[in-house]
Nucleic acid binder design. Sequence first.
DNA 1: ACAGTTTTTTCGGCATGCCTAAATTTATCG
DNA 2: CGATAAATTTAGGCATGCCGAAAAAACTGT
Lengths: 243, 243
Amino acid sequence: MPPNKHSPALSSGSASVQDYVKVIYSFTEWQDEPISSSQLANRLGVANSSVSEMVRKLVELGLAIHEPYSAVELSDEGRRLALAMVRRHRLLETFLVQELDYAWDEVHDEAELLEHTVSDTFIERLSAKLGYPHRDPHGDPIPDAHGTVDIPQAHQLAILDAGHTGRITRISDSNPALLRFLSAEDIGLDDHVEVIGRKPFGGPVVVRVGTAGRDRELDLGDEAASALWVFSDKPHAGCALAT
Amino acid sequence: MPPNKHSPALSSGSASVQDYVKVIYSFTEWQDEPISSSQLANRLGVANSSVSEMVRKLVELGLAIHEPYSAVELSDEGRRLALAMVRRHRLLETFLVQELDYAWDEVHDEAELLEHTVSDTFIERLSAKLGYPHRDPHGDPIPDAHGTVDIPQAHQLAILDAGHTGRITRISDSNPALLRFLSAEDIGLDDHVEVIGRKPFGGPVVVRVGTAGRDRELDLGDEAASALWVFSDKPHAGCALAT
DNA sequence: ACAGTTTTTTCGGCATGCCTAAATTTATCG
DNA sequence: CGATAAATTTAGGCATGCCGAAAAAACTGT
Ligand SMILES: [Mn+2]
Ligand SMILES: [Mn+2]
Ligand SMILES: [Mn+2]
Ligand SMILES: [Mn+2]
């Protein structure tokens, strides 16, 4: 009989399988709607038909839960695999920035490939060498070797009301050009921000940003304000975050 | 029309193509018989028929030269690709040993996969970080970024006559167990060796090995003596090396 | 409620790279 | 030289993962 027909999916699956579960997981990392077929296809850059086929396979492998025409979710096994892949990706990004002097907008694509290739040994040695980091260059949390991850309670700058203050906890790395813009504007992780207000008719958000005494006021367009995730200074009661 | 139908093979080919040209190249690195189909199949761990198919493809890609039923050789283009891959492989091995504390018998398999995945940028940054090394943990020479490589004039310990002395320049990494044996015997790169003699009827080679004053005499079986490549101390005239 | 739109799945195909078994060519030896 | 033997190539298939087009299901608004 063939090697693993109904194997318990202990192994890690192909690179494609790994990317699928990673995208399914990541979609719910900062909000909790599960991902649809077409969103999955979009994120992966493949046709919808390809997603249908692969999702069936993920279900067969015990990695995903799916009933036709509804959203795709991960099984416990799938989530474990996804967390392992996210750990790999983020540790690799951290390594590229800290040890090989990559800029933070250059690391994503390289990590996207390497994550499928390095061994567990490599990852654990890397983690040790980097001092067991808990977040990557964009502030995304790095799960530990057991799959435990602590996701900071943060909100997109774009949805915060005037008066809100906090620190930048995470910056979405999905658009390298935006990351370069933020570097040029000298905006980075842990910078303090205060929402001054919003210009009318869907205009930019006005914020005060600055690490120490040197802070400045600037306008942020919607894409930038949505990429910046802020950890609020004080437990502000009664703001737009109630949901 | 499709993107690159008759493209000049500037790009690097698939992982398989890369491994094939690397093996074809490596076969002639320390001797000059070109490799046959079945030897290629052996080294790659694939069926002979797979080699026939892939060799046809390599010829189509302009990477190899081959006429049916004869040995396989590389074109200039193929050699350039092979040298680039060898550079990648050996820099990665060096990195794993120097930065991630791998043992020298553990690096080959990891490098065999990573070599296909890392970017040129990664490799050049790595080379800089490691101080532009010229050889890997096994003494194999690392080609520079332009594909220039300097192969030391060395000979297998197994073919040297009694009285010969020199330094270990290279240790074949094809058998991890052998590498572990050599570590246990405290034999390493640049150790001085002297051939004492050979025990009768195909018996082991007797050598004196040692880095400084602490040298010892020991017997080496044929596999070990073939894996050790020695750079002779003085230009010994008239020995078995004339060939 | 139902016609039209959008989303999702199914179907048939393509590209890579591997395999086994069957030719075919080349090498060897009496 | 000719008959085996050995090496190599060809033929036919399989697995993965992708695609576009067509079918099916699920939403929409009136
Ligand atoms: Mn990936
Ligand atoms: Mn990141
Ligand atoms: Mn390889
Ligand atoms: Mn090596």
